[in-house]
Amino acid sequence: MPSKRVGTKKPKSAARGAAATSTSSRNITARVAAITKSPLEACDSDDKLQSMLKVLRDTAEPIDVRLATLQALQAAAFSVVAFESCRGDYMATLRAVAEDADPELRQRVLGLLAREKDGFAQQKLLEGLKNPEKALVAPEKALQLLSYDVHADAYPVARAIIKNPPNPEAKREALRLLAADAASAPMFEKMLRDKDELAEIRQISASALHALQPAKMQAQAREMLLDTKEYPEIQATSLSALTNFGDAGAISADKPLMKRVTGLSGGPANKVKRTARQFLDKYDA
């Protein structure tokens, strides 16, 4: 179904424009207003619910109306108890429109299903990451949606994306996803020390390493601070890590480190200077 794939998606405005030509825009606006006015009415009766689900499924309906319907149903679903009687049909409809031609509808529906840790949505998202021809959303979005469920089996795909990223955003999302993977700690440690990596990637790595192996992050932070050739952003990150999570006894007794931070507190980089002072306030009694 190439027409609905990410790479060939129709611009949103064009799609809506096309829909608007077949239905008067005033009519569409009125319908959207009516739908969004009282979303909780969706479950007042089976008839109302079924008619809303029908609109959502109907590809001939204007996309604005379908999106408004989805939003109304989403709002109604927020009230778990009230929505109980509608939930089954709602979930089936979401799955049915997860491969819709409209990219925005697709993405929103996949987002709703992913939050439910839905196996169908996870399967589709993983398929898309393994085979871009089948992708329903951009890779970075797919990774973000898969990260809602730690059990989604996305780690191998995320690692593959880090090795061969389709774009920088996808690499960032893959790293964020792997921040919950204990086996990825050595990779984060390596990236953190790699001066050729972007500062943002190294900062994500620092955060992930702190979550997975706090002791290793502390050791690396010390090493990076003592490294006179390290970038100021990374030095600031290292200072923050030690200031917030460091072992007070060990740090206060670490003369080379204290000397180095004292030097940084008078250095030229403002952010480093500020964090270095916070560090010294805490440890330099």
Binding site: V80, V81, E84, R87, G88, D89, M91, A92, R95, A96, G119, F120, Q123
Partner: peptide
């Protein structure tokens, strides 16, 4: 509160209708 359609027709199938 997590009720949803299921399909038993084929292996790995997810229900797309009630």
């Amino acid at each position: 509160y997590q009720d949803q359609p299921v399909s038993f027709h084929g292996y790995g199938e997810y229900a797309l209708s009630s």
